[in-house]
Amino acid sequence: MKKRCNRHSRLPVAITLLTLLFLYLPLVMVAIASFNASKYGGVWTGFSLKWYKALFKSREIWNALTNTLFIAFISTFFSTLLGTLSALALYRSKNRFKAIYHALIYTPLVVPDILMGISMLLLFVTTFSACGTWFQSVFGIELELGMTTIIIAHITFCMSYVAMVVLGRLQEFDHSLVEAAYDLGASGLYTFFHVTLPVILPGVIAGALFAFTLSIDDFVITFFVKGAGDTTLPIYIQSTMRHGSPAILNALSVIFLILTFILVFTTQKLLSNKTETHK
């Protein structure tokens, strides 16, 4: 690169630094507050780990955490499967149908959470009232909002993210490799498992990590489709924030931040491998 720094405006640097400050200042304040012995964050009354201890002892939090992880694992598995298949289909299809399919997969990425939440709630409510009694008389199970409806909702919104990530990976991959495999007499399945899958695997794993993070993160959609007694971590955080003492939330936030950092770092590593191996 040529030397041209002296002709550059400093403004973009300043904006970047200020934005980073803006992004991290509130988080840093929470991290500091989490070690504060005082119940109310205003005054520093000494270093303490008591909020972390309280966190690990809280029954409610463990319960919410187990639910959250249960939902996240199941919905990650199914959304990764469905999302990867749809990315493969999107990548290969060339007919008119593609535009509709494309819109079906991509619009959930931008549709506000609240619309997804309410539309799924209404789907469940209307289906349950239409065939709930029939279902109970035949299968003996009462249809109601609960873990199942939460998982269905999570699979739905995670799928599109997986499809997007895997498709991105597919588009960078050299299709002539597949043709070469065919020319050498490999079957479709053999080619898929020995050529396509190894190439897209980092994308699939990154997609699964995205799905996992999104599922753990979701409040709005879960809030709409959950049953009366179901709590996940975000639901717990929200209800604690509205009533009760939130000092314990500082410690929870710090743990969340650290976990997110690790997850994002791993995902980024997986996605940036492509530049080293394929270019």
Binding site: T19, L20, L23, Y24, L25, P26, L27, M29, V30, A33, Y40, G41, G42, V43, T213, I216, D217, F219, L233, P234, I237, Q238, M241, P246, L249, N250, L252, S253, F256, L257, T260, F261, L263, V264, F265, Q268
Partner: peptide, 25 residues
């Protein structure tokens, strides 16, 4: 990475952080 991390941090925790940051005390 620094820009992405807050994006993936739990949404409620980010809001919570602002409630702490802007708190009257």
């Amino acid at each position: 990475l620094l820009i992405i991390v807050p994006f993936w941090t739990n949404f409620l925790i980010r809001i919570y952080a602002w409630r702490i940051f802007l708190h009257p005390e």
